[in-house]
Amino acid sequence: ISGYGKIDEAFYDELEEILITADLGFDITMELIESLREKVKEVKTDDPHQVKALLKELIINILSTGNRELQVEPPPAVVLVVGVNGVGKTTTIGKLTHYFKQQQKEVMLAAGDTFRAGAIDQLEVWGQRNQVPVIRHQEGSDPAAVIFDAIHAAKARNCEILICDTAGRLHNKKNLMNELGKIFRVVDREYPEAQKEVLLVLDATTGQNALQQAKVFGEVAQLTGIVLTKLDGTAKGGIVLAITKSMGTPVKMIGVGEQLEDLQPFDPSSFAEALLGDTDENTNVDDTKI
């Protein structure tokens, strides 16, 4: 941030730019800047670092909403993983399995994407890497039937956590969303005793459309959390603020790569820090260039 020691309009403009380019969206950016202006008046500060810390606090407040723990205790538990195409659902399942196995939990997978080319084989590879069973049918078969079978297999083998993959689907496709509704009903009916986690996977690279994704998936299912993937890139994933603020759905985990270990519990503080960036240092670098 340039203009050290001076909290002027240009300073607020720069903050606005940081938030917009982090994909927060215009509305929430404006709200945050407004709240920040009030706070600055209240605290009576003219130190840019302190102002930034205040902004960080406002962001952390929003992101700390809800319960960020994965609800899988006491067993059995079922985790449904949903989202639009290519966001990282299947990969997240591979990583989640590793995460749970490290906690000595018995995990089983259900290959509920029977549509996309190679989807079942892809999940099978993650099953092998984690040495857990994968319940699968043939490509093209009814996904609800796969989930049905998987639930009964999980019961028979006393499995603690069943994680279900689903096909990527755009939220504006009515028939595909209905198909998802059917899967949820099967789970409710066949596994009433199980803890339920319904995780919406969002790609951090996604812009404002992610809000619509969350809303519509949330109408079909009771979402319990968000997994934000691909945070190892340069995208900041700021749209989750708008989602958490308007729907109360917490971000629970983040994806930071394509390997088994690349899944972490979500930490609002470090997320906010990454979002606001190391702008002080960047400015210094820019200054020397000029």
């Binding site: 380019t21 982090a22 890139g233």
Partner: peptide, 8 residues
């Protein structure tokens, strides 16, 4: 390019 991509 995914058409849903944001600022990045």
């Amino acid at each position: 390019v995914d058409s849903m991509t944001g600022q990045d």
